[in-house]
Each structure stands twice: as structure tokens, then as C-alpha cells.
Design a protein around this nucleic acid. Sequence first.
DNA 1: TGCCAGGCCTTCC
DNA 2: GGAAGGCATGGC
Length: 282
Amino acid sequence: MNELKIKVDYFNLKYTLECGQCFRWHKVDENYYIGIIKDRLIKIRQEDNYIYVLSNNEENLEQAVREYFELEKDYEAIEKRIIKVDEYVNKAVGNTSGLRHLNQDLFETIISYIISANNNIPRISKSVNEISKRYGKKIKYDGEEYYLFPTSEQLKNVTIEEYRDCGVGFRDKYIYNTVRAINSGEFNLDEIKDLPTNLLREKLLSLMGIGPKVADCILLFSCGRQEVFPIDVWVERVMKKLYFKEENVSKKEILKYSNDNFGSDAGIIQQHLFYNIRENLI
DNA sequence: TGCCAGGCCTTCC
DNA sequence: GGAAGGCATGGC
């Protein structure tokens, strides 16, 4: 089995996989992370400016890894641009340089972030893994069993009660309705991917269980729209702390601040601020 | 025990 | 259009 070696710049594997944007990667053996990209298992580690990749399927592996981790995107230019925004962004990006957005699967991201509402990251991971284990395709690798996140087709006969059994709580009916909308053709994932951001957001908002915050996470983490600024409790907290002196301020006002000051890089800045406040770095 | 978590839906003004 | 209440569940 060959280990693929790829040169990377402005890339930090730990920050990228542990910043909360994805729910299925886990750390093994100190150095490695194991996860899924599309339909293959990936075992990956970073040493200095190189990542080393193992997989059960080596066909076009490098291309798949490059797409998933956005290796073609010029994060050097992005980071050099956003550290000039203000002192807080400068500090946050300094703390977590190399944090990148992933290019995640749209269907998996939709379901995962429906589950994320009023939830916490360990429990989201647990539910997403349980759904994968019950309904996704099994992959054997190195004597262990792993599961792909199921396709909408694989979920077509799953009942509300069966989702509930995966630990998703009151979100069971949201998942059920969304899967049904997709399978019926009423909501076509392939047709919407390239829509302008505002239209795509409207489409996503029409799905049950998707509100403004979840829609923005989907736009950011699986549609490459780095101008959106998802506001959850943590982002609200860090924005109040840094820019509003703890005042009682609405999400609308926070969003306006982001639009006025962070512009088309708002999503990148958001992810740095989110990770910094959660790790108590800022 | 009560509060919190990558909020959203429904109901009621 | 905005505010208030309810919601499953596990960790602290």
C-alpha cells in the first residue's frame, strides 16, 4: 500500500478537522486521522508542510484529497488579506493559521447540520455515525469496519421513529421530511448547486429543519460560499465580546457588522473566531 | 437539579 | 415582522 505525499502551504490538518465543521473524522495513533472522502476511506497525517495519505482506493486519490481540502485555493492570499481587517482577526488567524474549509458532500452536510440545531458537537457526531452505521455502506480497512454516510436513496424507507433511535431527538421529523423531499424529486440537489448564493439559501430554507444558521453552514462547508457568516451561540458570544462590549445586540446587527467589515471573506473569519472562542484562545 | 448545546418550528401578536 | 415557548438528549 502506497503512502501518497502532498506538499501543502497554509494548511493545518488538526485545525481543519477539529474546528467543528465536520463530524466524522477521528484521531488515531497520535498522528493519524481517519475519515471518509466520497466513497473511500482516508487515513491522513501531517508533518511540517506535507500531508501523507493512505486509502483503500488509490485511484485518483490525490485529486480527491485536493478537492476535499481545497488545496488549490490560495489560502496564503486569503490569510494575508484578512489579518489586515482588524487586531482581533489578526490575532485569531495568528492562533489558527492553516485552518481551511472542507468541500464536504452536500447531502451529508444538509442532514448533519439539521441534526446540529440546539445540539452539541459530540452528540452530533454520535448521531451522524449511528445513521451511517445503520444505513450506509460498509468498508473494511486494516481489519476494522467503517461506514459511508448513506445516500438519500438508502434512507428512503427509514421511518421517523428509526431516526429517533439514532439519537437525533426532535429533529427526527425534519430529517424524514428533507429526505422525502429529495427522493421525490421535489428538491433536486444537482440542480441547485450552482445557483447564486441568495437563491441557493432560499432553496435550503424551504427544507424543514433548515433555518438561517443551518443554511449558512451548508453554504459554507459544502458549497464553497465563503462570504456567508453563520451565527451560532459561539459566534454570537465572540462577536459580542470583541466588537460590542458584551452589549445586548441582535443577530441582525451582528450580521450587518460582518457584512460591513468582513465582506467576502466573512466565512473564513467566522471559522477562525469560532475555533478561537471555543478553544479559549481569544 | 438546572443549564447548555454550531436553532428551528409553531403560535400569537 | 418580531417575540415567546417548546423541543430530545447527554454532559456538566
